[in-house]
Amino acid sequence: MKTISFVLNGKKTSIEVDDNETLLGALRERLGITSVKEGCGIGECGTCTVLVDDEPHYSCLTLASKANGRDIKTVEYLSSSGVLHPLQEAFIKSGAVQCGYCTPGMLLCAYSLLLKNADPDARDIKEAISGNLCRCTGYIQIEEAIKNAAEICKCDR
């Protein structure tokens, strides 16, 4: 067992984890964050995506001990007191959510993109979500939602 301390969605968190525990397992089983999902379990689908220091990582391939001292964000970070992030609003409006399984990972990759690039073009958006699979929407609505959210976020600045 190891004790790890990290910032989870803006809050200091300290937990005990097993040596062979994944970050995905720790978030779901010890901290109740079930927005982070296991899809393939081998880093191919992106539904386990979390942000580590604002960069997307696959939590299914990340040892929980690697979170020590880092900033970890899950989709819960994006909304506060029931107010959705412009990205989340845009996803709803564009019909970018169908079964919803990929949505948290897609949102986090989009959020990370907008942090670095406030004015992404279609290529940047495709690249940012290229490590995440969606088997419902065909991606068109997701790309549109991210583009629309970028416009709104720009206006907010």
């Binding site: 880093g43 995506t49 990582h57 990759c109 995440n132």
Partner: peptide, 9 residues
């Protein structure tokens, strides 16, 4: 290489 997540890791 791989995807953005793979390249970050």
């Amino acid at each position: 290489v791989g995807s953005p997540q793979i390249r970050n890791m």
